[in-house]
Structures are given as C-alpha cells and as structure tokens.
Design a protein around this nucleic acid. Sequence first.
RNA 1: GCGGAAGUGGCGGAAUUGGUAAACGCACCAGAUUUAGGAUCUGGCAUCGAAAGAUUUGCGAGUUCAAGUCUCGCCUUCCGUACCA
Length: 855
Amino acid sequence: MDLIKESYQPKKIEKFVQKYWKKNNTFKTTEKKNKKKFYCLVMLPYPSGNLHMGHVRNYTIGDVIARYQRMLGKNVLHPMGWDAFGLPAEIAAIENKIHPEEWTKKNIEYMKEQLTKLGYSYDWSREINTSKPEYYKWEQWLFTVLYKKKLAYKKKSTVNWCPNDKTVLANEQVINNKCWRCNTSIQKKKIYQWFLKITKYANQLFNDLSLLKQWPEEVKKMQKNWIGKKKIIEITISLFNRNEKIQVYTKKINTIVEATHIIISKNHWISKKINNKNKENQININKIDINKYAIKTKELAIHPITKKKIPIWVVNFLKKNQNYKEINAIICSPNDSLEEFNFKKKDYVKIIQLIQNHKNNSIVLNKNKLSNLQESKKLSVKKNHLIILQELIKQKVIQTKTIFKIKDWGISRQRYWGTPIPMYKNKNGKIFSIPEQYLPIVLPKIKNTNKKNEKKIIFSEKNRKFLINGEEVQIEKDTFDTFIESSWYYARYTSPNFKKGMFDLQAAKYWLPIDQYIGGVEHATMHLIYLRFFHKLLRDMGLVDSDEPVKNLLCQGMVLSNAFYYIKKDGTIKWIPKELTIIKKDKNKKIKNYFLDNGQKIINAGMTKMSKSKKNGIDPKIMIEKYGADTIRLFIMFSAPVEASLEWNESGVIGSYRFIKKIWKIVQHYKKNKNNYINNINKTENDNSQEKIKQKVNLTIKKVTYDIHERKSFNTAISEIMKLVNELSKYKIKNQKEKSVFHQILLLIIKMMYPFIPHVCFVLWNSLTGRNNIDHASWPKKNFFEINEIINFKITIVIQVNSKIREKIKIKKETISEEKIIFLAKKSKKIKKYLKEKKIKKIIYIKNKLLNFVI
RNA sequence: GCGGAAGUGGCGGAAUUGGUAAACGCACCAGAUUUAGGAUCUGGCAUCGAAAGAUUUGCGAGUUCAAGUCUCGCCUUCCGUACCA
C-alpha cells in the first residue's frame, strides 16, 4: 500500500496506521530487566462523556514524551484508565434516570474511541476502571489497614445540606449559599465523617519537597504554602483575677520580654465570653471593621517575666489573614514584626498604632497618624529577665512549636457512586473494619423509587445489612472521596490485574517511581499532595521502596476559548455557543459585535476555561474529522508553551496542516524524481550548500533534542524543524551524492517529527525505507553528519554608542580580535558621526556579539 | 482575603546566561500559477516618518555601559482555596 502516490489524506492514513498498531500490539509493555525503564504517566481522566481540548493537550504531551523515550531505547510504560467514580455520574443518573454505571460505561466507550483516533501509544491491556470492585477492593483493604494503624478516624464535621432536595451538596453545587438546583438556602449540618491523618505526614510532605529537583518551582511553592510548616513560640500565660490560662504566640523571643499587648481573634473564647455577657460590648465586637479596628477587653494577662498586667485586645483581622487554627492569640511588642504571621504591612502598622494608643478603648483609623510610628524605642533585655526566661523555657511555659496549615483529609462522602467505606457497626453500635475475607464490599443496588423531592439516589437499606462472622451488622453508608482512587492508581498500572494485593511488588519495584507525570496545573496542591501522601503510606507498609512517587512533573496550562453570553430578563446569564453568534464588524472602530439570529446582542466574556456550562468547549471530534489527528496534535504542541494557558483559535490550525502537507509533498516529489535529479544548476552559487545544510542539520538535532529533553519546550522544537524543512524545500539536488544526503535528511526529519505526528511519519518512513518499523526507530544522534569542511559563516557584530545600536559589522569569525573590531567600528562613517568631538569613557566588548562605546 | 502564575505586533508566540526585541506560525497586502479554491509558490509585514531617525515588551520608579529579563510599588487576567475532577 503506497499511500505516497496520492495527495495527503489524513483520515485514510490514520485509520491504516491505527489498525496496524492494534494488530501488532505495538505498544504492549512488559518488564524487561535488560532495558532501562521509563514510566510516563498522564493524569487519568474522569469519564465525563466527551474528550475536551484539555485532555487532548495533556495526552498529546504524554504521547510525545513516551514516543521520544522509546526512540531513546527505553522500555516505556504508558498506560491509560478511568477515574470512574464521581459526582457527575450521579447527577446524570438523577436527570436522565439512567444508572451511573451504565452512564459511565457508555462514556468510557466513546472516549476510548476518541483517544484511539488521536493515535496515543497506550498499552491498553493495562486499562484501569476505578469503579470496578477488582480495583476498589484494594483501597478498601488499605483503609482497614490504616484504621488499625490509627491513621483513619471519625469525627464530626460540617456539610452543606439542602433541606428541599434532602441531600448533601458539594461545594460546587452551592452558589451564593443556595442550592444550584432549587435555589433553596443551604444549611450547615454537622455529621460524623471519616478522616485520614495526613497531618501525621505533614512534616515529611514538607521536607521531602526538597528531593523533588525536577518539579516546577511554582508547584513546590504552592505545596509549601498549603502544608504551611511554621515554627512559633508558645507561651502559656495567666489571666489576672481569673483562674485560667491561655496560650499566646509569637515568632521572636525578644517579643516576650518587651510585650505590651495581646491581641486575640473574634473567635477566641475570651471574645465569645464578652460577647455573651456584655450586650453593649457585643455590638462593638461585631462591628469591628475597617473603621473601628480593635476593641480593648476588660481582661488582663500577667506577664510571665515582669509580672506586669498587659491588656488584651480583640482585633478583626487575626482569623482572616492566616489559616492556623492555633494562632488565635498573639503577644506583641512595639518592636516585633507581625509580617511573619502573614499579616499585611498595613495591618501590622495598625497594630503598632494600637499599642501606642492604648489609652483609648477603641481606635478609629486615621491615615495621617501612620507616619510617626517609627519612634518606638528599643528595649534591652535585663539580666534578671534572662534568667527568668531560661527558667520558664525549662518549665515549658515558653516553648517552640511547629505548626501546620494542612488539615486532616476528610474522605467521607454522602453519595452513592463511590467506593463503599469498609466499616461496620455491630449491634452495640461499636465500629469495626471489615475483615479482608469479606472484601470487596460492593455497591448496593439502587431502589427503584424516585420520590418527588429527593434529588439523590436512593439505595435499598436491605443491602446495608451484612453478615460478619454470623452476626448481622450495619455497614457504613458513606463512600470514599474519589481522590482516594486517583491517589494510588499509578502503582496499580504496574500490575493492573493482580489478584493477591494492591499490586505486584516485583512489578512495582521495576516501574516505580514515575519518571514523568503530566497533568493540569489545577492539581498542583490537592491531588499531588494526596498522591505523595499515599506513596509514603505504601512505603511505610513496605510495598514500595522510594520516598516520592514522581521524579519529573510537568503541569500543563489550561485550554481556554472564547465564551459568549447575554443577560436574560430575569437577570440570569445565558451562555451561548460561538456557532450561534453572528459577527458584525464595526468598520471604523474595528470592534467585533456579536448578535443572535433574533438581533439579541451578545457579550463576549473573553477567554475562559472550556466548560460545558459556558458552552465554549471545542469538540476534538470535529477537528479530527476536518484536519486529522496529526494536525491537531501538532497544533496543540506548537501553538503555546506547555505550561502556559492555550487560547484556542482555530485559525492557527491551518498552519500545522500546511506544514504536514509540505513534508508530504517534499517526499512525494523526491520519490517521483527518483532517477532524474537535476544536473544543470549554476554551480558557483551553491558550491558549499551541501556542507551548509549538513551543518544546519546537526544544529537542528542539537536544538530539538535539547528542547524536548531538557526544556520540554515543544513549540520551539517544532519551529526549529519547520526552519529546516523550509530550507530543505529550497535545496536543489545536483548529483547522486547530494541525493543520498537529501534522503538521509528526509529520514531524519521524519524521525524528529514522529513523536508529534506519528501516523503520517509511519507512512512516509515506509515509503522511503520500505519498512514498517518507525515505531522502533532510534532518535538521531548528535553530529549526525560528519562535516568535511567547517564553514565559517559571517557573523554580525553590533556596534553601539551609549547603548544605542548605530551600526552592524559583518565579519568572518576567524579574523576577529577586539582591537580589530574597534578599529573597524571607528572607521565606519555612521560611528564616526557619533564619536565626533566626544570623549570615549569606556569600551565594552562582548565576544562575537557587541561593541559599546560609552561617551 | 490568602497562595501560585502570567501580561511582548492585528493574533498564537520566540528571545535558554542582563547583550541585535518580535524567530516560527496565523491573519493581512502585492505578485505568479491554476477551469476553480478554504490549493500551491515568491515577496512584504511592530509603530510613526519621504528619509535621516525616533518610539516600543501592562503602568510608575530604580539598579546598570546595557533591562522583556534584576529590585520596589501598582493595575489587569488566569489557576487553586480543602465535597467538581
């Protein structure tokens, strides 16, 4: 089948090549001890029903890296699966009266077909579906282990409750404190829920970030701030005329000695006490705002060293500005910097002001007074104070404490479509974990009732009864947070059908850790912290032997597209797909206006994240039909750097399409002229063109390899290949020798483009070599061509006068010396003009680049 | 509010280490070719200016011989904010 004879027909080519891959199991992977492994993982998708451009971007990056690594001779694990539990399935189930399982299954089938059409090189034999009992059995098992290790516990916590729908709402389902379905005001309800003690690992999760050398700095920063490790000093301090003590905090030991004040939050028990007792004060406390900044309480604390009485103030910003539950009282002095508690400078300034003006019972902010704040005198620590201080530290009245922002992970969900929590209550109401032989606890069947007001899935209570050791018990109703499933799937991929445990230890040992993980930047904190947490849990159980699950992380930016809406009469917003808008250009102002058929004016909301609700999603299916998978893949990799957000604009796609056609045509042309190369080109002009293009090829390989391998800068890698193709398309073959060089360059370009556009490269490779083995080809090596004669291109030296470019001199590299360039520069007419009658103060010379006269 | 990131021609972007701003591509303009084009090829293209030249990387300062790049202040947009995934 020689497709090259025809014009480029992506559909035909892609179908043919995909069939070949499937038939030959090209991408099936097994553990090969003699080969270096490379685990390339993309974040598994939620089967929402259609693949969106964000997926396409994520998976194309993954596929490019996987194919590139294969070309380097690595044994590449590149799996795909489905994060199949979750809220949308349940919503769809209620709306369409279809079982979540059925809905999910259908979606998976459709999305899998789309992934196949995009030509991703997955080992489909390792496919995972997290909603299958074979999968979730093992996270149930893990949970029972964690429970026994006291890493899982139950406590009361708040949920959003819609009294009308009689269901718990996710945060996303609450809009302006109202239910998104029925607009009923939601209630806060406290119920018992399961938690995982991630705080026990907080210190490790924080410290081990330093091991992650190949993670983006921004992600590490975000995680650091999320975990929020902080060292503070805790002082237990007595209250005057009360038999009670409170804990107050500071960052510096000096503060304690110099302390003149304590500030507490509105939620501190002292504040609340005042609130309850004193009705007059109650009004004041609730009115603490920008105008009335702080209120003095009647309480006094006794300074542990000086024994002086120091006042306690309630301030309005303490709780607001930091997320440490511990810090609800701070001891301050005029000299300390409260910025260390993450307060804004203006807040800090206000506190100093507060301390200086504490004669008044409350402070009204006056901007003019802020200037004379610096005058506070420094106090020195007296000797006897120091001794008392040391004693207090010994008695642990004063001690350092490490605190964390991160909270324990609440994993209970009051939902149907999720992994059942493997716990039960016996007749006495005592809680136990379910023994391993009874696992998995599978989902109960849904009762066929749909009462009018109940917008949730009703399951049969009968199914909640279970026999354990002959005793009838009540099984936990709640299910797991779906983040649990996505926290260990990476390990399951190493042995997806393993029946004796979470995964086969040998396989995990071979494949883990993940060499390259790719996913959206929106997962920088939660998912990526849970994943790291689980890996450490698995390590401490002896199941994996590394500290961190991911070596190299790449976070791609969002795919955005234009969204349009209009405001309805009732004030609500109606989103409109772009296809329904009619564009009218205002010729004078060059502004585009959008309308509906009926003349309704449409507002352009600009570029926003593609979503169903905003109707601005681009369906890859239509794009594939129109241009083929290779073009989409190429475009999405070419049009923006991976970490930046990509604004979808179809007009650019044509460029990628043209580029593929260009390569196709060059090969086609070359094949047609197989035996009649051109003899009669004027030779003087192109004497060393062959050496030149060889040199260009070597440079291109170097740059493309560096861009893909080190920088993950695919857009510049592609542009570099484009430049080479442009040059090659102008290259004229004069003799047989040059023809062979041309042939080699063609193969090289095909190899370098293969990770991006594998289908067309497969066919082109076949037509030039007669073989179907591009999938096993190796990546081109540095110095591909041996160069006989190094051509010294002329280089340009920029001549500046006072840092402004005034002249450019072309020069041969070998003839360069600083003196000579200065000589040549001074000789130039333009430069002469500027240097005339001026003194040269300084001459700066940057080798091979630039000369600057400072006058 | 808090944490993170970004802002460069008409558009997507390039400039990897402070050293020629705008590579590569889209759109546009002109020409060639074709029965035709949403095909192909050649050339032009930051802005102002006839030219010399001047100006230009969100805004305002600063450091430096030299700033898109470093420092400080501000503005705008995007992502996350613990039950969307």
